[in-house]
Design a protein around this nucleic acid. Structure first.
Lengths: 215, 215
DNA sequence: TTAAAATTAGGGGAAAACCCCCAATAATAT
DNA sequence: ATATTATTGGGGGTTTTCCCCTAATTTTAA
């Protein structure tokens, strides 16, 4: 028996879901919540397999709920449900631990399919959502290549030093591990700062990660 | 007329593609390459709209070629082609600027569709590839939550300071912008170092980005 | 209501990073 | 061959970070 918790601030929607699900013999709606915090407390006190979670909950929103859930109750799976096929919602909640994402205009059959997929440990996304994610993946790339100033090519040594900086080594430690002088590493550091247009190591690391320079 | 460069180390495959494409009036194979470096030199010397790039090229592999291409010739679009539906290949080459990814068992019609989509600035992925990407997105999350040590909750102030550090502000500048003392910011810094288990700002930024702490 | 955590702030010091300056040698490209 | 870039290294100095200590006030949670 799959134990479900339905979380949405619209009572009618929650009841609708419940009536859809109650005809299924392997599914059971064990709880209904109308805001974020009550989801967390319900899950703490009752066994739940899957939370059908509205992304746009009032008060504590779905994202936060999902994040907290996946941290404190990693065994509980989250199927995100939303009215909107917004790429920001989709990617955000996936990064916060949701196992699936469907839209509210999803039909009965697809809802059941999604629930059972997730219960089996698989993930589920409706077709529209999948398309949205692909688009956002691409736009993400475009955005990062569009906004940023051209980055001059880094030399082999500079890349090495950069990686070690990101791994929290000090200049002296980098010098030791590369068998070169402290001054040489400082010299590479300063050309890195200038090439990446950064003010300090923090910026170096941020820019390096934004540009995938650490592979 | 869409100008295509076909890059693959298997001559038969290149010729096959060419013969498929030559019946199309809006497509023209203007070049054929059998290794990585020659792709780069061809593109430098000839106008090319789309490169049909085999991911598994000998010598300089497809990934490197794609990365260099998108840096030095961002106007040239890359349609990655591979024998394997390996998630590592797919995600890697997408992060290196490819606009689409199809498999070698793709049929004629889908190939044409992919080329024209990409020419119009859209992206294209075959169905199998899309599934693979979704899976890898999920696994990525699993991997990152599996390996990393639990991160204590950061307080509101700590998050603020962390974001400003990542934006390359110095402690003094952070103090000024938050209207608090230098010493207070130092105190937040040190609790950040301890909570995130970092040795310095570089680590702070790396860990913050690895855990999406900067949104 | 009491305990715990967060926010504030300071003194003082050591280590690291950052910023000028410069310059020789090695590798690479034209 | 020759010019450019990469790599190496140094002197000397300022700024910033990091670390140790303490501690009052405020906010939040049990």
């Amino acid at each position: 028996m799959i134990k479900l918790l339905v979380a949405d601030d619209h009572t009618m929607f929650v009841d609708g879901i419940e009536s859809i699900l109650k005809t299924e013999e392997d599914l059971e709606v064990t709880g209904k919540c109308y805001n974020g915090p009550s989801v967390l407390s319900f899950v703490t006190e009752n066994p739940v397999d899957i939370v059908l979670l509205d992304v746009n909950l009032p008060g504590m929103n779905g994202l936060e709920v999902c994040k907290t859930l996946s941290e404190e109750h990693p065994e509980v799976k989250v199927l995100a449900i939303s009215m909107f096929n917004e790429e920001s919602f989709v990617t955000e909640i996936l990064n916060h631990g949701a196992k699936g994402y469907i839209l509210k205009n999803t039909g009965r059959d697809e809802l059941l399919k999604a629930i059972r997929s997730i219960y089996e440990g698989k993930s589920y996304f409706s077709k529209e959502v999948t398309e949205t994610i692909m688009k956002s993946l691409m736009n993400q790339r475009k955005a990062s290549t569009r906004t940023d100033h051209f980055i001059p090519k880094l030399s082999r040594r500079e890349k090495e030093v950069l990686k070690l900086i990101a791994q929290e080594f000090t200049t002296q430690e980098i010098a030791d591990s590369l068998y070169i002088s402290l001054k040489t590493v400082e010299s590479h550091r300063s050309s890195l700062l200038s090439k990446l247009n950064a003010r300090n190591s923090a910026g170096l690391v941020r820019i390096a990660m934004e540009h995938n320079l650490l592979d």
